[in-house]
Design a protein around this nucleic acid. Structure first.
Lengths: 192, 192
DNA sequence: CGTATTTCTTAACTTAAGTGAACAAGCGAT
DNA sequence: ATCGCTTGTTCACTTAAGTTAAGAAATACG
């Protein structure tokens, strides 16, 4: 379990045993049950998550309707915007499956960054990379139709289509569940 | 002109005169004419931009059509994804107006980060903040209709509606120029 | 088990965006 | 001042998504 974390981190910086132990001493590993809500709308939080196993999602409650905007699975990091802006959260974070993750709070990170400059570099590189990746995703979303987005999802994240309920996928694609059903039927028709 | 840059930076870190001079020594200020293309599709680049005055946009060329995905104006930073991924650019960067900006390349930044840890912190905080901001924008886009997006844009970036051509605004909103025209007529009708 | 709830699909109808085309206004360059 | 190109609007028509509703299938749970 620890290995998954360190394998991930080794892609960005190489850590000494001392540094690894410092990380482990923080006792950040958590196991949470499917259905758990990690963060509520309106709540303040300083926690970031790194998924070791399982799946979580972020969603808004708009006019009584859940709007899912992102999924995070194995080896992915989520720092909710409210942690950065220090304001109440605009969205919920919930577990779609039994999930193992690390929970680290921003005070802790500040301190670690001060103690080990290497971590500051890690955080900078990681967020630069996430920013670029998210920009590409955003652009792809803007420049394509719901159908193209769905076909793209099949290519890029085939696992999500298996493990996530359709109506959550639908709002992730920016449409209603009924439209996703129809769209899928349309694609099947074309193939034949 | 330098003051605009230092005012911006002072929101994140406080710089000594020595540090300021080190920055100025890099000679990063540029003045570019309206219409200039700063980055082409397929091109490799290490340059990031900070806009002091004017406006630039990023756009894709898809099936011979320009798809504008972002605008950057006064006090905004753009690091194209290709700079981070070190791969050829997927999009163009062009100037909508005569623009004054700084151009800094990533090698330069690496070095500055090594010399002044303060800059590393600056870069980390800035990209964390941009990541969070972009996430909020992306979510808002996904969870709203073209009409809501347009109304939202009037609230959040009224300047863009004045200074940017409609057809570029349209693709920024994820629709065709004709649809934007119609949508605006529809809104006017509702008001009366 | 079997019942309740959630999830998914289908269908008919409404609304809005995409498409193709025509036209007018604005702007830039000569 | 004029010619040409870019830009914005309008219209008729097509296509696809939103809405409302009903029912089937899968899943959760007592």
């Amino acid at each position: 379990m620890k290995d998954i974390l360190f394998d991930f981190l080794s892609k960005y910086v190489s850590l000494t045993d001392d540094e690894k132990n410092a990380l482990l001493a923080l006792d950040i590993f958590r196991s949470v049950k499917k259905g758990t809500v990690l963060l509520q709308e309106g709540q303040k939080s300083k926690d970031s998550y790194f998924i070791l196993k399982g799946c979580i999602r972020t969603y808004y409650l708009i006019d009584g309707e859940e709007k899912t905007t992102a999924f995070y699975t194995e080896m992915e990091v989520l720092t909710p915007p409210c942690v950065i802006s220090k304001t109440p959260s605009e969205y919920y974070v919930g577990c779609l499956e039994d999930t193992i993750l690390t929970v680290s709070n921003s005070d802790m990170e500040e301190e670690t960054n001060r103690k080990f400059p290497k971590f500051e570099t890690l955080c900078r590189v990681l967020s630069e990379e996430l920013l670029a990746k998210q920009r590409i995703d955003f652009d792809a979303f803007k420049t394509s139709s719901p159908e193209q987005r769905y076909l793209n999802l099949i290519q890029k994240r085939p696992d999500l289509i298996q493990r996530v309920p359709q109506h959550q996928l639908a709002s992730y694609l920016g449409i209603k569940p009924q439209s996703l059903s129809r769209l899928r039927a349309r694609i099947l028709e074309k193939k034949s």
